[in-house]
Write a protein that binds this DNA or RNA. Structure first.
Lengths: 226, 226
DNA sequence: CAACTATTCAAGCGATTCATTGAACTACTC
DNA sequence: GAGTAGTTCAATGAATCGCTTGAATAGTTG
C-alpha cells in the first residue's frame, strides 16, 4: 500500500474544513454570511459576542478558506469564499435535521411551535409568482434585501410588518420569507399577519436556497414607497 | 431578540455534524463508505487502525447520524445514512481543495506527480461511452464493483491490471476509474498501462460522483471471463 | 452447553485544542 | 493627532482529542 502517513495527512487536510464548521458560533457566522457580506462589528452584534472573540472565529474560518475579506476604508467585510461553502452549510444543516435526534427538540425550543403556520415550498411559490396572485414579503433587514432578493418581493423588515399592513393589496395571499429554514423572522411575520386576520404563509426555506435553486432573483432596490 | 441561549443551542446542534467530520480518520471512513457498506473489520483494515479505535470513530459518526448499521450474522455493516452525507463529503472535499493552500502539497505527497497522466471528465466519458469507442476499467476491489459501477465498465482490480492486458480490445482508448478524485488506484493503473505502451486516461473523479451525477450505472455482475 | 468471532464498552493516557477575555498593536479616516 | 475598526497576543481553565488496553456482550457454530 502507498504511504499511510501521506494518506492520513491528506485526509487530515480535508478535516481542516470540518473543524472550521465544528463550532456553533462559526456555523452561525456562515449562516449569516450566506445572506451577503458583513463587517466584523456587524457579525459580532448579530452573534452577541465580543468583537475580539468574533474576530478569532473569523480568523479560524479564514485559515480554513471558507471566507474571504475585502477592505473598505477602515472596515473589513467578510463573505463566503464560494457558492460551494453555502452548499456545504446546506448539506450540513440537512444532515443534522434528518439524523440528529436532538435537533428537532432544539429547533422547537428556539422557534416555538411552527405546526400551526402555513408553509409553501420553493417550487409552489415560483409557480404562483408567475401567475401573479401572491404578494411576497422579504422580512430580513433591508441591507440583506438590497444584496439580493426574490424577484418581485417587497422589503418589509420584520419590525415594520405590523405598521405597513395597508400596503398589502387585498385578496392576494401573502408569503413571507427570510434567511433560511431556521430563521425566526418569517414565522414572526406570519403570526403578526394572522393576528390581524390576514392569511399568510411562510416560505419553507430562505433566500440563499432560492438563489441556489436558480429561481428568479433581483438586485434592484425600488425607490421608497411614498 | 429571541432567546439567545436557544439559538446558540440550535447551532451547536448543527455543529455536531461538523465535529463528526472534523477528523481525518472519520473523513477516510466516509470516503470509504461512499463506495458501499463495510464491516467494522474491513474498515479497520483499510484505515490500518485497531478495531477498537475504528469502532469508536464509527460510534461517533453514528451518534451524529452520518451512518447507519445493519447486522448480518455476527457482523455489523456500516453505510452512509443518506445521499446527502455523500454530498456533504463532496462539498467538504471541494472546499478544501479550492481554498486550503496546504492541500495541494498534501495531495502531491500522497499521489505523486499526476500532471503527466491524461484525464477525462465525467461528461466526456459519458459521451464516448455512448459512441462505444472506449474501454472503461473499474480498478477498485471487486466487492465495490459488485455494489455498483459505471454501466459497461469491466472489473479489473488494480492488482490484476498488469496480468490481464490481453483482455483489452486493441484500438480502443482505455479509461480507468476508482473511488474518487483522491484515490490512487486509477493513477496506478494508468501508469502500468502506459508502461506497456497502452494509451490510457484516468477519470477525474470516481464512482460516487458518477452516480451522483445520475449518469448510467449498473449493478450487474458479469459471469467470469473465461 | 462451551468455544469462537465480531463488535462494543469502560477506563485511562498524555496531548492537544477549545472558547473566551482584556490589553496591546496595526491600519485607516477625518 | 484623535478616533474608529479590526487583529493579535498572552493567558486562562476547561474540555476534548485520538488512541490503547482489557473486559463485556451478542450472535454463531460445533
Amino acid at each position: 500500500m502507498a504511504d499511510r502517513a501521506a494518506k492520513d495527512a491528506l485526509y487530515d487536510g480535508f478535516a481542516v474544513v470540518g473543524r472550521a464548521v465544528a463550532s456553533g458560533r462559526r456555523a452561525e457566522i456562515i449562516d449569516l454570511l450566506a445572506q451577503g457580506e458583513r463587517s466584523v462589528e456587524e457579525i459580532a452584534g448579530e452573534l452577541a459576542q465580543s468583537v475580539a472573540n468574533t474576530s478569532q472565529h473569523l480568523q479560524h474560518l479564514l485559515r480554513a478558506g471558507l471566507v474571504v475579506t475585502r477592505r473598505d476604508g477602515n472596515r473589513i467585510y467578510y463573505s463566503l469564499s464560494s457558492k460551494r461553502v453555502s452548499e456545504l452549510w446546506a448539506a450540513m444543516r440537512d444532515v443534522a435535521a434528518a439524523h440528529v435526534a436532538e435537533l428537532e427538540r432544539l429547533a422547537h425550543a428556539y422557534l416555538g411551535d411552527r405546526t400551526q403556520l402555513d408553509t409553501i415550498d420553493r417550487d409552489q411559490l415560483a409557480k404562483r409568482l408567475k401567475s401573479g396572485d401572491v404578494v411576497v414579503l422579504d422580512v430580513r433587514p433591508s441591507a440583506e434585501y438590497d444584496a439580493g432578493h426574490i424577484a418581485g418581493a417587497l422589503s418589509v423588515p420584520i419590525a415594520e410588518v405590523g405598521k405597513r399592513l395597508r400596503e398589502l393589496p387585498e385578496g392576494k395571499q401573502v408569503v413571507a420569507y427570510c434567511r433560511g429554514p431556521y430563521c425566526v423572522y418569517a414565522d414572526e411575520a406570519v403570526r403578526v399577519l394572522r393576528k390581524r386576520g390576514i392569511r399568510a404563509a411562510r416560505l419553507e426555506d430562505g433566500y440563499p436556497e432560492w438563489e441556489a435553486a436558480r429561481l428568479p432573483v433581483s438586485r434592484e432596490i425600488p425607490s421608497a414607497v411614498s
